[in-house]
Amino acid sequence: MLAAFLLSFGIFVGQTHAEPKLDKVHFLIPGGAGGGWDGTARGVGQALTQSKLIKHASYQNMSGGGGGKAMAYLIKTAKRQRQTLMVNSTPLLIRSLQKVFPHSFRDFTPIAAVIADYGVFAVRQDSAFKNWQDVVTVFQTNPRQLSVGGGSGRGSMDHLVAAMAFQAAGVNPKSVRYIPYDAGGKALAGLLSGETEVLSTGLGEALEQHKAGQVRILAITAEKRSAAAPDIPTLKELGYDVTFVNWRGFFGPPGLDDETVTMYTQVFEKMYQATAWEQVRERNGWADLYKPGAEFYAFLEEQEKTIGELLKALGFLQ
């Protein structure tokens, strides 16, 4: 009994540490298994290991506090997390602003944004709205008539994207009648059952139904038309000066040295060329969006400013 015990310990000891450079990456996921962050981390990890860019990837789920727990944890244990990357995305930035937790991207070392999702607006196929113009017209005359459903709460992403779009059309974002649902799927069900008129959600959530003809996506918040759905006009080309991108990327612990950061960004750059990444991306329907280091930081500041102003306009922030 004791011998077997010692033997198993011996095996564990065999796999030790003290290895050079980027041998392994430990992904910290601020949500549960099966969620968006989880899928992103595991997908990226898989691409990296399959293309032999890193030797080993490990994953740690830590949900709670809307993502705040994982953030607090990374800050607290920063010294021994040199090889840890935390998945992040726009909702976390929004929650920082809403003060759901006391941390923000400034408390970390932003490494890079890797993929992006864009907001879309959809209506039922039998809806009277044939294009985004129609929606805006109705909204301009009588905002109370239009209900916009979304898969997150008031003041969260889906609401903000809708508010942003209407604001660009010259109306008061506060008058958007936003109906919150727990998740994108439920919001979609709400649209289809006739409970709401318009759906504000991510492209990935509604694309299939759009292709099937069940819903009609009227606009997308990207800069250029999406390759996955080239028939959807962007808000910009319709004449509204607004874009929004829900980025997903990685942060490192605070105080990470520049050398390590560069190492990570180089790995990500190489990842984009790899076929393994191509497969992962195809599978999940992600759009590439690469913003490393300083560019990422500047982008975050910009998004924070835009969203901050919007939150103030909506009355969520003083």
Partner: peptide
């Protein structure tokens, strides 16, 4: 892994 560091790798 806590105190038993060598149990770290997965």
């Amino acid at each position: 892994p806590g105190v038993l560091r060598f149990l770290e790798s997965n």
